[in-house]
Nucleic acid binder design. Structure first.
Lengths: 234, 234
DNA sequence: GTAATAGTGTCTGTGAGACACTATAAA
DNA sequence: TTTATAGTGTCTCACAGACACTATTAC
């Protein structure tokens, strides 16, 4: 931080936040926007925008999550938001020098983006259907980092409950793991491990019947724990 | 990334890199510099500096690691460098709006910083002796993040070999784990787990005797593996 | 009835951790 | 001779994973 170099003498940096907002319903999906202007007009991109001088980077991420994704503030409660990594190749944006701080966010139930701002072009896309070449800038790389972060964090944290919402059965929770990881999981062993993890899930008195048969399943809500001890293995 | 907002109309951001360079010899230590100018003149700080317009953030980190730490390029071969996190509170630097991208670096044997640049004020400090209040800016927070990152990565990666250098005995490797984690480890179980991890260490024909007694120990070098399967538990 | 699922029980293999034991070298 | 360490062996406990089984519901 000692400076032989005065940054005021050089063309400035712009700082942006880009958000990998993920959810699970029928698929493990990411919210993408269609760019309305150059560069990359018409391409898909991660929602994001410039950090303003009077807000921290974290604050900018929260603001963009609301504005740009158009996900209503009701759905935004209980959203998980964490910093992912920072991308700063020299020419990643052709307009000027832009450094992007990427975030990962998790929301339950893929809520429909409300109209307004740029949300007109916002849509949920199954992550397996997104082709790298379709994404603007270096967003394919950012998306890949975000997906990998979430896949690995499901192993040793209770983050899956952020994707499950505030009421879920163990079958629904297991389905989230199966869709995110892309592997089948033994229901009996999954049940035992989840219930053995202190603070992961809390049973309610409620029961829920699934279509297609089977006895009513106990409904659970997220527990107070954040880390999983022992971890769930992929 | 769609912009209703033109960043050119606002005071610019500066982007810096700060480096948490860690090593283990007698202690688990971090390289700190004494600041020569305001703000925080005389305080300890992490080595770092401004990112230049013509270099990526990663390139700036590599450059600063050489320049600012003054660790010779011989010792810099085999150094591990990875991005840690980005810190962007509004007033973290009183001069102007500065966003800092922090990196963690690991080097073997705490090489003495060579004179030149600001390295005159660079010194290795045991991480347990660093008091948060002694550090400039938000560097205490950055240091804490870096330490925690390394502590947890020793569990599931082969990073400890970056702290051990290119020739080491299992006792020396174990000592690194003990100093970083601050807990004693059973030598017999440690040996078995390390040798059972494919690609962690490779035996050489060399033997080395430790002062104080005991038979000569086999010397190992780092293996090609990067992840530890199964992990070493703290 | 039939199919599907909730929830429980059980067996096996693997690995973590504790610790005993010997062999070898420094002081 | 004493002390410390290298390296091996072994025992126990816990858990992961595979899978059988019963009970209960939708259709």
């Amino acid at each position: 931080m000692t400076t032989h170099y005065d940054p005021r003498g050089f063309p400035p940096f712009a700082v942006t936040v880009d958000i990998v907002l993920l959810s699970v319903v029928d698929d493990f999906s990411v919210l993408l926007v269609t760019r309305g202007e150059e560069p990359h007009a018409g391409s898909l991109a991660l929602p994001g925008g410039f950090v303003r001088p009077d807000e921290s980077i974290d604050e900018a991420a929260v603001r963009e999550l609301g504005e740009e994704t158009g996900v209503g503030s009701r759905a935004l409660r209980g959203v998980h938001l964490e910093q992912l990594a920072t991308f700063g190749a020299v020419h990643r944006d052709p307009r000027m020098r832009v450094v992007s701080v990427a975030y990962v966010a998790l929301v339950a139930g893929a809520p429909t983006p409300v109209a307004g701002s740029d949300a007109a072009g916002a849509a949920w896309c199954a992550v397996d259907d997104v082709r790298s070449g379709d994404l603007a800038f270096d967003h394919a790389q950012i998306l890949a980092s975000g997906i990998e972060r979430v896949r690995s964090k499901l192993e040793y944290t209770t983050l899956a409950t952020r994707l499950a919402g505030d009421r879920f059965t163990l079958a629904e929770l297991r389905r989230i793991y199966e869709l995110v990881w892309g592997t089948p999981i033994d229901p009996a062993n999954f049940r035992r491990k989840v219930l053995a993890s202190d603070g992961f899930v809390v049973p309610t008195t409620e029961k829920r019947s699934a279509p297609g048969g089977g006895p009513p399943a106990t409904v659970y809500r997220p527990g107070p724990g954040v880390t999983l001890n022992p971890p769930l293995l992929r």
